[in-house]
Design a protein around this nucleic acid. Structure first.
Lengths: 203, 203
DNA sequence: GACGAACTGGGACAGTTGACCCAGTCGCCT
DNA sequence: AGGCGACTGGGTCAACTGTCCCAGTTCGTC
């Protein structure tokens, strides 16, 4: 392996770890599997990280930090049409997320596993909380943009609406990962969009 | 350890395994941890089961089979009041589930972990599918009873409605396990009940 | 009470895993 | 060019885990 700085090595290992976790699950993401994926020796691992636990913690932090807006509101308007209602916009956004899930199911499965892992120990629980706060944050932006675009007003604090949407999204994710039923997922999306849009007053 | 039949031993081990998984997670549910919980020796384990994998598969089957109606419709009527609407009944049912979740979060977390474990290997995927089919089945019964009690009629096949409700329930579960925010959970419940009840025509 | 089969306990073993150590090599700075 | 600190590779270790074996014990049946 070529020489690289400790910082580069850390991120290379984190990338490799994410690939291993996605492909084979967290339990199979041993130090050896990760360094093999990254093409390094075991010593490099412990040169860059104190322990496997430290890497997993960083991995969670990294995936959370990288989580990007799945939806740019402008695109949604393009997708949903010019005079789209709030419900239509929300539905278009959920469908966008669903496409993302279908394109890379293993990634979402990895996220779920990382959440569960974090939930298992008190000192890591905050990582899971941060992960979901990040989700909520992204959703808040989207919901505000959607309301602005349609002239609607959220009747509840938008953070509350976002939290509900995050829950719906999670349910959609798990159930689809289990049954891979696209039509059923579409019904969840429609119901969620309907419920969500009722939390706002139209313009 | 007293003598017991292989069948008794199998179920005792499965019970013990469920306790270990709930308390410490699937990864920590080693053969030794399980027999310690059951108060047996390691040899008894492999006398009763071919392998740890076999036990885990049986465990999934067992928890799925044991999954009982969380809600008896009559109780819900009592809880929601005599002239309750469909939406109120659905909400009462969801709240009943939520109380169950609050009373034993570790159990629901264990169920989630078992699902994810099953999702990870093709030959076990059907176990997860069966698990969710069982959930849907229970929900179907409840939804039909609720519709009958209020004289409402589901506009979609009730199986479709059930699948949506299962997804909402999962989302509620995960997000609450993460943030333990009861008020936020109540909002999810209300939104879900609203969305669901719109899938029916009132009497 | 004797007998065979069912059952049990303790120990053993090989494979895996996280961690680490040390001798060596490389790249940068002076 | 030389030196020093950063980095690397390979080997090693103890702990843990799943599995298995075997000598012994206990139970139901005759």
């Amino acid at each position: 392996m070529a020489r690289m700085s400790a910082a580069d090595r850390r991120s290379a290992l984190i990338e490799a770890a994410l690939r291993v976790v996605s492909r084979e699950g967290l339990a199979q993401a041993t130090t050896r599997a990760i360094v093999a994926e990254a093409g390094m020796s075991l010593a490099s691992f412990h040169y860059a990280f104190e322990s496997r636990d430290e890497l997993v913690d960083e991995l969670i932090g990294a995936v959370v930090a990288r989580e990007r807006k799945a939806v740019a509101p402008e695109e949604l308007v393009a997708a949903a049409g010019e005079g789209a209602t709030l419900a239509e916009l929300v539905e278009a956004g959920l469908l966008r997320y669903f496409e993302h899930l279908r394109a890379d199911p293993e990634h979402e499965q990895a996220m779920l596993e990382l959440t569960q892992y974090a939930l298992r120990s008190p000192e890591r629980h905050p990582l899971a909380v941060a992960q979901y706060e990040r989700y909520a944050e992204l959703v808040v932006e989207a919901l505000e943009a959607a309301a602005a675009l349609t002239g609607a007003r959220w009747r509840l604090p938008v953070e509350h609406v976002a939290r509900v949407l995050v829950a719906f999204t999670d349910g959609l994710t798990i159930t689809w990962l289990v049954d891979r039923d696209d039509a059923a997922a579409a019904r969840v999306v429609a119901a969620a969009a309907d419920a969500l849009s009722r939390m706002a007053d139209p313009r």
